[in-house]
Design a protein around this nucleic acid. Structure first.
Length: 646
RNA sequence: GGCGGUGUAGCUCAGUGGUUAGAGCGAGCGGCUCAUAACCGCUAGGUCGGGGGUUCAAAUCCCUUCACCGCCA
């Protein structure tokens, strides 16, 4: 077997892990585990990108050093990957010394190729993106198209990389017989972009920012992308005294996969191979591009606030259920929609009914038929053998193509065939009529064996679940060899423990409404408290819900203190209606009656009236609440009374 | 505006010239009762976005049009 290298992108430490990071990392983990399983020598790398102005600014806001800021977020990543069972071989951080050495080596090598030159770099600069924009790319007012923040005109001398020189070699790379970029739609995108001509890119930034000093240039740092991309080799020891890992995993004969999301396609499919060509190093064999998770069919973005951090799902249903869902639901390369309903449906139908119930069914049948043990006699001639071979073949083929959904579907077909087989043979009836006979033994052993094969193949996707099922049916603890997928390994006459439901069915309606106790945690999970639906969803309201609140502008006509209270004031306001309304507001400590009269305010017009100190308040005025003290909201300019606010 | 992609049963999708267009989920009916109200069987009548063309034959090839998405400008 060969060597197999796979990486995730390094994640930027200005953000905590969300479903996008989790998906990428789980995919890489599944591939890594699968390749180890079939016998490859695997190196699986993930890590964090810790340089750049955003980190520096975030640290400043918190009053800490950038490194401290990075350390804090990195520890969260470590926690997540541990919880999710990520089996990376190394975790690289761009603030590590070994990474700096590698970047310096890249710079030295590219320099030696004569691909650097200095020139003036000018444009509208967004400090959040750390990118220059042309006039036409900007939003009105010279604002950044990504961050909508203001940009500033900058002109500085930078080091440029001769990207344009590599146009032809890149096109050759894309035209090679093994696809450099998968899926093909992304490869087309990249090719047409490169065919359109490449401009040289600047790879240094002026100033002593939070980054790696550019070798030989006192007051510049290495541009974040040249810095970040090099991570893929710094963990292998590029630039260090020890080249053993580099030689072992990053050579033309091995498989070298950079797994990324579609947002960073160009950097990985164009810049990265060009840097490597210039540096005289092998390029990746494949850059694999996955799609994005949508939330209920909408794009996920920070500004919309619909980021999915599935901590609750993991805590309630275990990491394997999420791993399964992510791989089963998404067609690799395409976008997919994440919804609680889809998750529950997958959980109930695939995990509870198909997998969990089939295991439980067979274990209980065997226990009751054979005195608490696995069947004493095996079978080497039955329809399940061919079905299993076919399922395993389909699984291997799909796994090799990153078609994880098909790989899982192939295994689930065997589960279905196993249930069909059992119904056709009705061993529970045979036991009654002929006792624990040889035929009963063979039937149940076949069923267990089919389940064992499914579970073994499933172990890269659901490692924890697979281990407990295999233990439950008396098999090997952890499958480590490809030939454990061959028919015939379920042990005979071995004690079977009373099965515990692996995936108790979820009451869907109750779960979706966030009801307590809707979901029982699987197995003996350490966190027994049932959780409600993720906070992200329950905290959000629809626009319709928002419009239930009628907000209107009004003018204060009179104001008088209410006797015997410190805070309350009675206001008569004009809401543009036939008659005036009375409001009672707790603002007397901050506003005198005199300064209130004539002022325009925003009012909740459809609030149920309430009596305060005997005075009925027919609405509520809006104020910002600063430490409990009100600051009135008013219009930017005079508006008619009754004007709706929305 | 240019290039590319997608549009197939309620939902998610498979199917690139050839018998009555498929799967899973959901729904309905029936069966079974070993199993986590699970499992098994049957049913569901979708003008394969619209229009035109090529062909003995098209979801599958060509042209055109509409909608949505991506990349670029």
């Amino acid at each position: 077997m060969g060597t197999f290298y796979i990486s995730t992108p390094i994640y930027y430490v200005n953000d905590l892990p969300h479903i996008g990071h989790i998906y990428t990392t789980v995919v890489a983990d599944v591939v890594a585990r699968y390749r180890r399983f079939i016998g490859d020598d695997v190196f699986f790398l993930t890590g964090t990108d810790e340089h750049g102005q955003s980190i520096m600014k975030a640290a400043e806001r918190l009053g800490i050093e950038p490194q401290e800021q990075a350390d804090r977020v990195v520890s969260r990543y470590h926690e997540h990957w541990k919880t999710l069972g990520i089996s990376h071989d190394d975790f690289v951080r761009t603030t590590e010394a070994r990474h700096r050495v590698a970047v310096e080596e890249m710079v030295r090598r590219i320099e030696a190729s004569g691909d650097f030159y200095t020139d003036l770099h000018e444009g509208w600069y967004c400090s959040s993106c750390e990118s220059f924009y042309t006039e036409r790319e900007l939003l009105p007012g010279h604002r950044c198209p990504t961050h909508e923040s203001e940009t500033e005109w900058q002109s500085e001398e930078n080091v440029f990389f001769r990207l344009s020189k590599y146009q032809d070699r890149l096109l050759e790379l894309y035209a090679g017989e093994t696809p450099f970029v998968i899926p093909p739609s992304r490869a087309n995108e990249v090719r047409s972009f490169v065919e359109g001509g490449l401009k040289d890119i600047s790879v240094s930034r002026a100033g002593l920012g939070w980054g790696i000093p550019f070798p030989g240039r006192e007051n510049e740092v290495v541009y974040v992308w040249l810095d970040a991309l090099t991570n893929y080799l710094s963990a292998l020891g590029l630039g260090s005294d020890d080249a053993s890992k580099l030689d072992r995993y990053w050579h033309e004969g091995g498989t070298r996969i950079n797994l990324i999301g579609k947002d960073i396609l160009r950097f990985h499919a164009i810049w990265w191979p060009a840097f490597l060509m210039s540096a005289g190093l092998p390029v990746p064999s494949t850059v694999a591009i996955h799609g994005w998770w949508l939330r209920d069919d909408k794009k996920i973005s920070k500004s919309v606030g619909n980021i999915v951090r599935p901590d609750e799902l993991i805590e309630t249903f275990g990491p394997d259920a999420l791993r399964y869902f992510l791989l089963r639901e998404m067609v690799f390369g395409q976008d997919a929609s994440f919804s609680d309903e889809a998750f529950v449906d997958r959980f109930n139908s695939d995990l509870a009914n198909d997998l969990g119930n089939t295991v439980s069914r067979l274990v209980k049948l065997s226990r009751s038929s054979f005195d608490g043990k696995t069947p004493p006699e095996a079978c080497s001639d039955n329809p399940l053998i061919a079905a299993a071979e076919s399922a395993v073949a389909g699984y291997h083929e799909a796994m090799g193509e990153f078609a994880f959904n098909r790989a899982l579907a192939s295994l689930w077909k065997l589960l279905s065939e196993t249930n069909q087989y059992l119904v056709a043979r009705e061993p529970w009836k045979l036991v009654k009529s002929e006792g624990p006979s040889a035929s009963v033994s063979r039937i149940l052993w076949n069923g267990l064996e089919a389940v064992r094969i499914v579970t073994t193949a499933l172990s890269p996707v659901m490692p924890t679940t697979a281990a407990s099922i295999l233990a439950a049916i008396g098999g090997d603890a952890v499958p480590v060899e490809r030939d454990t997928l061959a028919w015939g390994r379920t042990p005979l006459d071995q004690p079977l423990a009373e099965p515990v439901p692996l995936f108790p069915r979820i009451d869907k309606a109750a779960f979706l409404s966030g009801e307590e106790g809707a979901a029982a945690p699987p197995k003996a999970a350490a966190s027994p408290a049932p959780k409600q639906a993720p906070a992200q969803e329950s905290d959000m309201i629809t626009i319709e819900e928002f419009f239930k609140t009628q907000l209107k502008m009004a003018t204060i006509l009179t104001a008088e203190r209410i006797e015997g209270t410190d805070k309350l004031v009675k206001l008569m306001v004009d809401l543009g209606e036939e008659s005036e309304r009375t409001l009672v507001a707790g603002i007397a400590e901050q506003y005198s009656a005199e300064e209130l009269v004539g002022r325009q305010i925003a009012v909740v017009a459809n609030l149920k009236p309430a009596k305060l100190r005997g005075v009925e308040s027919q609405g509520m005025l809006l104020a910002a609440s600063v430490d409990g003290k009100p600051v009135l909201l008013g219009p930017d300019s005079q508006v008619p009374n009754g004007t709706p606010v929305k």
